[in-house]
Write a protein that binds this DNA or RNA. Sequence first.
DNA 1: CACAAATGCTACACATGTTAAGTAATTCAG
DNA 2: CTGAATTACTTAACATGTGTAGCATTTGTG
Lengths: 123, 123
Amino acid sequence: MGPIRSLLSGAGLTEQQWRVLRVVQESGPIDPTQIADKACLLLPSLTRILQKLEEKQLISRERDKEDRRRQVVQIAVAGEKVIADNLEASLELMEQTRLKMGAERYEALLDLLNELDQIEMPE
Amino acid sequence: MGPIRSLLSGAGLTEQQWRVLRVVQESGPIDPTQIADKACLLLPSLTRILQKLEEKQLISRERDKEDRRRQVVQIAVAGEKVIADNLEASLELMEQTRLKMGAERYEALLDLLNELDQIEMPE
DNA sequence: CACAAATGCTACACATGTTAAGTAATTCAG
DNA sequence: CTGAATTACTTAACATGTGTAGCATTTGTG
């Protein structure tokens, strides 16, 4: 992730802010609990990240009208722009890593990491 | 590392404090720069960790007499005891993970992670 | 020897993981 | 319907990673 962090720091974003922003953009209106699940974050961390993203006006939040404990998070115009400006370069960096390692070994690494994750956390 | 964190939290230590303590114990008198290298930590992080370990009296520090910019870090008696009390259980947990994954896949994972590390950081 | 550059650490600021509490809103049992 | 769980988040506290500065000590060079 090092190179990607460098890329994003130019946009004033951190790695996790970027991940959350992408999740929100890809999924459309979504609540924090689901974001945390998709981005593999705990709610306390997500709370702070959403606050930062809202300050930067990259996302908008409002209460759910059906269940006022919930929020609905949406990407804002500025957020769409940030993604448009960085997504391509970000994917390119990942692809480069994949090629440098060799596609097969890259996939094997991902598989083994998933397996490790399963083992450590049976539930 | 989850299970190991649980084990160590019982001893009032964090994962990195434990790693640093083990490096100091294994290497004998050593300076912070070498510790950071062996434990894969940056010096600012290590500075704080050494401060905590010194507060807990698990290590001792003194200036190097030849080069007063340097320090010499040594494990203290209480530190030896902490290691004696936890090393076996810690190694056991790692071995269990290795067996659960299968020794071959476990080694393969370590190899691939090293390879990834080499690629991302040519220097 | 004097001074600039390098070295070894430390101090700070900011972001996050993690655990434990706390709050508001909803659900459910009696 | 009312009080006890539960749910969805937020806050707080502590430890660490990371980048940037700063300080003291050494080294290298003229």
